[in-house]
Write a protein that binds this DNA or RNA. Structure first.
Length: 388
DNA sequence: AAAGCACGCAACCGCCGCTCC
DNA sequence: GGGAGCGGCGGTTGCGTGCTT
């Protein structure tokens, strides 16, 4: 009954690996690569099954593995991603550089799961076990709603990716606006990135929405903010005014500024961050949390066909280094856009969606009007492009 | 000091999906 | 179309270690 185990052959060793075995495996892979795992043990002189070798390599011997304690940020990332993806450890691991799925799984099972349970949170649903006293407008309730929206969004993205992958394998080209090329050109000051959308090769790398989102809430310390000043959206006025921003497709609630997954409001941040960009004025407050998401949202809709303008330019007030990395394969650096971007930055504030200038108080557009204003800019900006 | 217990982690097992023939 | 082979994934196990009694 059932499938026979892969190590059924007599004489194949099981259990902990010895240093000698590790060395044999390392030496062989360094010289020849792993190729076929099934054939590898014999060639490497190991009395192990291929599966065991693969596991030892991927979980332990690989040179690009980070070992040791998980940082607070890594913990937060795991919890967030688990809320979105469930026990899909390999998917979670792709968002944690140098960590293996096995390590993350172990860490979840031995640490994080218990911690959440202690906090009264169901580690599987990420919802509070007891809902008494939590009104629908509570932070936790909103967080749950946000996660739900993010999961919906991520799910849509995965579907789109899968479709793209199949289409690209079938050799379908130019049949879908998703297959246009997405480029971001950037000024010398990366606070002003410009995203060009144009016809281009079909093989699009996927835009990692989760990382984008993660990048929006993970910048929590002053030093990090200093390092990432260029990833911020410049805005003024009330933080609550940007609550519940939704994309036109209603698949995404932008993370709330004050919930558990976002950094706290950063007021008067220019006290600690030099206004190098030229966009910031002395009295501007700075917040962040939706620039990356905006770019991600655009890419998502562009690739799903909701936006099909060609030769568009998206001006952003900044993308985090993280999302820049995600875009890296499709980015084109263009330093000539610096001045143009700066002026478009002003354009943003005139439309009440952020940017520099004196948009204080409650002067932000909300929800649909926010997104509509962005889309309107496709027609109104000098380059015929939406502005984030 | 020794036994019992809890914990963490490496490794195994079985299933699934993809690819090739 | 379907079966075999293979790699990958997630659940689980079992051993080593450190702590408690």
């Amino acid at each position: 009954m059932g499938r026979s185990p892969c190590c059924e052959k007599v004489g194949l060793k099981k259990g902990p690996w010895t240093p000698e075995e590790d060395q044999k495996l390392l030496t062989y892979i360094e010289e020849h690569g792993h190729g076929s795992w099934r054939a590898l043990p014999a060639k490497a002189g190991l009395q192990r099954c291929g599966k065991s070798c693969r596991l030892r390599w991927t979980n332990y011997l690989r040179p690009d593995i980070k070992r040791g304690k998980f940082s607070l940020q890594e913990e937060q990332t795991i919890i967030q991603l688990h809320a979105l993806l469930g026990n899909r450890w390999s998917a979670i691991a792709t968002h944690l550089p140098k960590r293996t799925d096995n390590e993350i799984k172990n860490y979840w099972n031995t640490h994080l799961k218990k911690r959440l349970t202690k906090m009264g949170i169901d580690p599987m649903t990420h919802k509070p076990k007891h809902h008494e006293g939590l009104g629908s407008g509570s932070g936790l309730a909103r967080d749950t709603a946000n996660i739900s929206h993010m999961a919906q969004w991520e799910s849509a993205r995965l579907e789109a990716e899968a479709r793209l992958g199949k289409e690209s394998k079938l050799g379908i080209t130019n049949a879908n606006p998703l297959q246009h090329h997405l480029m971001i050109s950037s000024s010398p000051n990366p606070a002003h990135h410009v995203v060009h959308v144009s016809k281009a090769p079909p093989a699009l790398p996927c835009l990692d929405v989760l990382k984008a989102w993660q990048g929006a809430w993970s910048l929590t310390t002053k030093s990090t903010i200093r390092d990432n000043v260029n990833s911020m959206v410049f805005s003024g006025g009330s933080m609550t005014a940007v609550d519940d921003l939704e994309s036109p497709t209603s698949t995404l609630n932008f993370p709330h500024v004050n919930n558990a997954f976002n950094p706290p409001p950063m007021q008067n941040i220019n006290n600690i961050v030099p206004c190098e960009s030229g966009l910031l004025q002395d009295n501007d407050n700075v917040t962040y949390g939706y620039t990356d998401a905006s770019a991600a949202w655009f890419a998502h809709n562009y690739r799903s066909g909701s936006i099909d303008e060609e030769e568009n330019v998206i001006v952003t007030t900044g993308l985090s280094s993280m999302i820049m990395e995600d875009f890296a394969d499709v980015l084109v650096y263009n330093s000539e856009d610096h001045q143009q971007n700066a002026s478009l930055g002003g354009h943003i504030s005139q439309n009440g969606v952020g940017g520099n200038g004196s948009c204080g108080g409650d002067g932000f557009e909300e929800n649909r009007s926010y997104w509509n204003s962005l889309l309107d800019l496709v027609d109104t900006s000098p380059s015929g492009s939406p502005v984030f």
